[in-house]
Design a protein around this nucleic acid. Sequence first.
DNA 1: GCGGACTGCTTACCT
DNA 2: ACAGGTAAGCAGTCCGCG
Length: 883
Amino acid sequence: MTVKTLDEFGFRTQSSSPKAAIASSQSHQEYRVVKKEEKWEKSVLEVEFPKNLPESCILSVTYEGEKRAACLKLYEPKSKRIYFWYDNTGHLPYCLSNLSINELEKNISLKNHPGLDHLEPVKKFDPISDKEVNMTKIIAKDPLSIGGRPSGSIRDLIPKAWEAHIRYHHNYIYDRQLFVGMPYKIVNGNLVSVNYSPPQDIRLTMEKLFENESEEFRGYIDSWVNLFQCPIPSIRRVALDIEVYQSVSTRIPDPEEAKEQVIAASLVDSDGLERVLILRRKDVREGGTKVPFHVKLEYCDDERQILREIFKALIEYPIVLTFNGDDFDLRYLYHRAENLGYKKEEIPISLGNEFALLNYGVHVDLYKFFFNRSIQVYAFSQKYTEFSLNEIAASILGVGKVTLDLSVSELTYTQLAEYCHRDSEITLKLTTFGDELLMKLIMVLVRVSRMPMEDLTRQGVSGWIRNLMYFEHRRLNYLIPLSEDILETKGQVASTAIIKGKKFKGAIVVEPKPGFHFNIAVLDFASLYPSIIKVYNLSYETILCPHPECRSNTIPDLPHWVCRRKKGLSSLLIGSLRDMRVRWYKQKAKDKSLPESLRNLYNVVQLTLKVLLNASYGVMGAEAFELYCPPLAEAVTAIGRYSITKTIEKANSLNINVVYGDTDSIFLDSPTQRQIDDLVQWSEKELGMELEIDKFYRYAVFSKLKKNYLGVYPDGSVDIKGLSGKKRHMPEFLKSAFMEMVKTLGEVKSPNDFDQAKVKIQAIVRTCYTKLKNKEYPLSSLALNMMISKPPSRYTKTTPQHVKAAELLTKAGHEIKAGDIISFVKTTNGQGVKPLQLASINEIDVDKYVEYLESTFEQVLDAVGISMDEIMGITKLESFFFH
DNA sequence: GCGGACTGCTTACCT
DNA sequence: ACAGGTAAGCAGTCCGCG
């Protein structure tokens, strides 16, 4: 029997899937896993099914096509295994119509639809009109009948269908109000929630912290505390990586064709087992490196043996980790197995167009998760800037991939083993470092977003927030609105963006006061936009609400008004999450009096909230977001502009000199503690916003440019924002010269020290200049490294320099794909650029590099009263004499 | 036929 | 497929010019 089909995901359907014999909840055997050795040979898993299951955690919810039922994947921590539970409540897919049953019954094609089960009247609360509405629930036998078929789906047969776009397995979670990531039991075949209650001291602290909030708001806080405090089980898992023979070394093997042999695979698990499977081949060179002692090297004469061992792991481990397994490893294995004569039901993988899922456990593709911008920026503070396993592992773990001089096909067995092993070793480590930070982050995100782990790790933050909001709609029996209806009733934006092509006005950037300023205090609003959403009751249903009496409750700078009668959903959700982070988790994460493990946990929650909160405003202004509401997004930024403007006015009235500010921050020149306190109190009282000291600089340097400055902390470390010398694409020689200058500026303690610094900086520039002129820098340090964001052929409007270089590379036989970093140098001949790989030192355009040197240093030096022209004048003169 | 003024494209950054 | 605002460098176009 099959485990599930993936129609629900909108996948290309595999007609059948591997034979994981799983009894239904009606089964009466004891729960235990039976591995039959003879079955293993076919990679077939047999599980006798639990009628009872001790406390287990829901990792995932899917739809099982053959059983026509939702299926839960539960992780039981003692046996460290996954158990399935199928819905036994008779839950069916449905959508909603505003037509009555009578009206719908006149619709012949609906009435005769083979997938139609029955019709049912329901009352829903419509948040847009703020009224109860009568609707009809159209209940179907299977999800595809509602929607998803190219034609003839129920949702296409009626004039307007609500909630028909929601994936069935998500819908099931909402209707059952399932807490994914939380503990449940199976008792007599039924799913039973295990109640968790946080320790009393935490409950009391929360009560105290939020005693002034409404009961409604406190309700949200309570439910979050449960989710965040409930212990997270450590989940048994394995990292998988395969190597494929390459006939042409620059060509990546095609996973759809899977023509070449799988020559190696490694499986590194969380219990310390590390295996490498190596295919014996002809003509493999002898020798090579030593593979670490603890790694189990297994030579296989037949490629099928390798696949069999991998498939065994795929039906054994609750979580399988890969790096790009969706697009490569699992896809390749699937088609390779087919090519080798495996039947579909013998392969424990289900392929979709974009995903590769497992029939037993949960496949987490770490590439997808790390690629998520929110994770990159907010959870890892931009620690990694490229998305290769090597880059990510090197910057997070300090260990990268094994570097190869040859292609994998040319390696000796042990070299190949070492290479392959390292990949899965670091893949696993990405989930174990920092006390399993990443797994915990995923689990907490699963809990907050109420989303299955497979979906969560593959979707963007807008998907998470949508799911969270939908879940809440269902809890309150709110009709989930159609995006088009929000847009129609909430109309157009009222502000104009400064940038062409943008939809509405954004934040204010204060004109910096050029020069250096000693003793700078930087104040900012704690989570400005989420605070605004909370304090101003912003939500798609409260902005421009239908009540005449609310029209006077307007937003500064805009004609929009906000509801007075009712609290907005997103205001409550985002507001409560914001408060949890600011008032509790952020502080606890820093509390040195707590044991490290606890602090760690608080940090995970804090980071999770950061990710969600930072995106909460952005999604409201993103067309692809299902609850997209432009007037709401522009209201947030308008109130933001109002807040910072009023705060600057107040600061000025307190005689504080504001030298710079951006969106939610203000830079104050030598304020007294008293002045700061006054300002903070004023903000709390007049704006209802928490203004706090973010950082303090011994001195800061501003040019006339916005978003460009340098701040020196009291300990001499330097904060650099926006300056060219720090930008990723700048050549290495320039970045290191720039950093030398920065270090010199870090030593400046008082205005008088600039004279001394000037002498040192002059020397730095001189050295750099002479080395350039004498071509003493290695070619690679002269290379600009720029990302190519789309394939070279898609640049139709202009051909930027890095694309020219990419074209030259393509001609030379390299494959260039979107996201690649193109390294190129400036040359005097040809098109003015050449890819690093094809250039030589004597065609370098030295003058161009001198220009870069000048402009980069100028950004900082002009502001501290050091003239770059003067330095360059002297430098050029000197170098003239030296020649 | 050429150079300056201008606009637009692209990337990288800030909040 | 979270937003808008800013900067640098370059590509491409237009216009004037005996």
